[in-house]
Every structure is written in C-alpha cells, then in structure tokens.
C-alpha cells in the first residue's frame, strides 16, 4: 500500500504563481482524474511533482509513503516509485528505449533477467511495434507511437503512483484504448495508483476514475465521483472557471 500525499502545493513558473494550493491524496489502486480547462495548471501540477526545472515550488508538500518527494532530485523521485507519462514526450536522438529502461532498472537495483522479453511482451499487449524499441526514443514517432512508448515504460517500470499528463492528447481511438486499458490493468494487477490529468473524459471508457477533481485557476474547485466527469462532458468548464475567480 502506497500513498502520494499532496498538501497545499503552490507552484510558480517564471515568477507567476500557477498553483495556489493543491491538496490531493492518492492511494494504491485508486484512479484520480484531475480535469480542467486550458491554462488551469494541470501540466504544472505534473511537472512540479516530478521536479521539472523551471517549476518552483513556493509552498506546500508532496510525500510518497512519508518520504519528502520535493527534497529529492527527479531521478530519485522515479526510483522511489513515481512515474510521469508526458503529454509531449521528448525526442532523445541516438538513445534507444532499451538503453533507457535498462539504466532505469539498474538505478532501481532491479535488473530484469530478461528485459528484452519483458519489453516484447509488454509491447505486444499494447500493439507497440517492437521495431521502435531499438530506435531512438520518440524520434520520428507518431503521436500514437509516442504515447504507446510512454505506456510501455510505465508497464515495465511498475511505479507505485503514475502521473499521466493528457495521455489522450493526439491519440487515435485504437491507441487511446490500448494505452488507457494498460493503465487500468496496472491499477488492478500491481495496485498502481494513478493521477490522471486530462481535459476530456474520453479516456475514462477504459480507465475508470474513482475520484474526479476539477482544477481551475490553480485550485481544485470541486471533487466528486465519476459522475462529475459526466457533468463536465455535458455542461463544460464555464461554471468552474467563473467560480475560481
């Protein structure tokens, strides 16, 4: 059982305050959706939790099983059990996915005896072309290939808590189903907790949220169950953007 505890998190970027105190608790096996309009601070939340340079935490705390996440460099946050699926995965010329995973596992003192076999099995599960495993990470990948690649890494590295930043953006319906289903399976099979940041609810057909939080202007303005996503789908964000003022 693991817990990611975000308390009163305040973050600024380039001197501008973006997050005005976010409080969220994510336990193993739980799926928390954070939804909000453009500019609400959704991506800032994921970047700050992972320690991306340029995102300055000005207040609050983030703890994983009691450990102070904010005191760790990025790589140790990942080793501790956090994993970020990026909205726009970075192209890294000349560096193969197998090299990245191999080094990531070494850092976890968890060398898989047969990494390639695991990669191939996981790739098959989400219809990821294994040819791409031996190409430079994300370089010349399509939008769907990039997100499948992100999902594959998550499946191999088995984090305690995953943060998914707009997994659905740029995805066709098949890729979306494959990726969302794999994340849902991870919450059931390995008890992974998930913080799912998204603008739309189409992701939830395969990945069922237990909790839905609405983020607007850097604050969580409402929390509820899955029904909240349906309400947003029907009525849009206008009411919440107003409420956050």
């Amino acid at each position: 059982m693991s817990t990611l505890e975000i308390r009163d998190l305040q973050v600024s970027v380039g001197g501008t305050q973006i997050l005005n105190g976010i409080t969220l608790t994510i336990n193993s096996g739980e799926v928390h959706a954070v939804m909000g309009p453009n500019g609400a601070g959704k991506s800032t939340l994921s970047a700050a939790i992972m320690g991306k340079p340029g995102y300055e935490v000005t207040g609050g705390s983030v703890k994983l099983d009691g450990q102070d996440v904010l005191a760790m460099p990025t790589w140790q946050r990942a080793v501790a059990g956090l994993h970020l699926v990026m909205q726009y995965p970075t192209e890294v010329p000349g560096v193969k996915l197998s090299e990245v995973l191999s080094e990531a596992l070494v850092a976890r003192h968890a060398t898989l005896p047969n990494l390639n076999k695991t990669i191939n099995e996981e790739a098959a599960r989400i219809s990821f072309d294994t040819e791409l495993v031996n190409r430079a990470v994300n370089v010349d990948f399509s939008g769907g290939e990039k997100k499948r690649n992100e999902t594959l890494q998550l499946a191999v590295l088995k984090p305690k808590i995953a943060i998914l930043d707009e997994l659905d953006s740029g995805l066709d319906i098949d890729a979306l189903r494959d990726c969302a289903k794999r994340v849902e399976d991870a919450t059931n099979e390995t008890g992974m907790g998930a913080l799912v940041i998204t603008h739309y609810s189409r992701l939830f057909e395969e990945l069922k949220p237990d909790f839905v939080h609405i983020l607007a202007k850097g604050r969580i303005v409402k929390s509820g169950g899955p029904e909240l996503a349906d309400e947003l789908e029907r009525d849009g964000y206008a009411a919440y953007a107003e409420a956050a003022k």
Binding site: K52, P73, T74, V92, V100, A107, V137
Partner: peptide, 15 residues
C-alpha cells in the same frame, strides 16, 4: 538539452 535530460531523469536514470 534540458528537456532530454529531464526526460531520462524522470524515468529514474541518474544525472
């Protein structure tokens, strides 16, 4: 490139 570095580090690869 900072983004390349961050991408790898966010997978748990030491700097």
């Amino acid at each position: 490139d900072d983004d390349q570095r961050f991408y790898l580090e966010s997978r748990g690869v030491p700097p």
